[in-house]
Amino acid sequence: MKNVLVFITDGFADWEASYVTAELNKPGSGYQVKTIAIDSLPKTSMGGLNVIPEYSLQDFSFELPFEMLIIPGGTGWKEEKNQQIKKLVEFCFENDIPVAAICDATTFLGNHGFLNQHKHTGNSLPYLKEEAPNYEGNKNYIDEQSVSDGCLITANGSGAVEFSRDILNKLNVLEGEELREWYELFKKGFIKS
């Protein structure tokens, strides 16, 4: 089984990665989802779910093979302590391991320069400029729900389904017509309005 890491903080937006983690953990996908946090203490999501991280940045072995790092948004990105993930993100970019960030996790990436050389999106360009004072990626900003560019996938906070679609495509879990049908089902439902 190939590992996909999901970075969690206190106040992580549990719904933003829920579509994709459910698909990745299905039998036959070839993937398993593992959680990582700054430490090994339980983290409580915005929805009140308590999660005990499987890995801690304090003792994480960069020898562990993983195929992608998924970073949900949430209220924890305003806390300085969560900026420690920068080291793991740098490792991913240096080793061509895809990083997928949504909502305020894109703001974190923007503030640390990870968006400057890639096409990307976020909650909005004005929001990125205001909340990420070191952001300099204006020329690569695309006003879309989710943007995939090389080893980077970004999405705004209302783009969880598009974000999941782009991750499933990048990891070759679903492709072509099967991916289109999956997206249509979760975007529009069984009953069309």
Rank of each mutant, 00 (worst) to 15 (best):
N50H: 09
V51F: 14
V51S: 10
Y55V: 01
L57N: 06
L57W: 02
D59G: 13
D59V: 01
S61E: 06
E63T: 02
E63P: 00
E63A: 03
L64T: 13
F66H: 14
F66L: 09
F66N: 01
M68I: 08
M68D: 13
L69T: 03
L69R: 04
I70K: 03
I70H: 09
I71S: 09
G73F: 04
G73W: 05
G73K: 02
G74M: 09
G74Q: 07
T75S: 11
T75K: 07
K78M: 05
E79L: 15
E79H: 06
E80D: 15
K81Y: 03
K81M: 07
K81V: 14
Q83E: 15
Q84Y: 07
Q84N: 10
I85M: 10
K86H: 09
K87F: 09
K87H: 11
V89Y: 15
F91H: 15
C92R: 06
N95E: 03
D96G: 09
D96K: 09
D96P: 09
I97N: 12
V99N: 07
V99Y: 13
A100H: 11
A100G: 15
I102L: 05
I102R: 04
I102P: 11
D104C: 03
A105F: 13
T106V: 07
T106G: 02
T107V: 07
T107L: 11
F108D: 05
L109F: 14
L109P: 08
L109K: 11
N111W: 05
N111H: 12
F114A: 14
L115H: 14
N116G: 10
N116D: 09
K119S: 12
H120S: 13
T121K: 11
G122T: 02
N123D: 11
N123R: 00
S124W: 06
L125K: 12
Y127V: 04
L128F: 00
E130I: 01
A132K: 00
P133L: 10
P133Q: 12
N134S: 15
Y135F: 14
N138L: 09
N138Y: 05
K139S: 10
N140P: 10
N140S: 09
N140Q: 12
Y141T: 04
I142C: 13
I142N: 11
E144Q: 15
V147M: 12
S148A: 13
D149I: 02
T154N: 12
A155D: 06
A155Q: 08
N156M: 00
G157E: 05
S158C: 05
G159A: 14
G159Y: 11
A160K: 04
A160T: 04
E162S: 15
E162I: 00
E162A: 14
F163T: 01
R165G: 00
D166H: 10
I167P: 03
K170C: 13
K170I: 00
K170W: 02
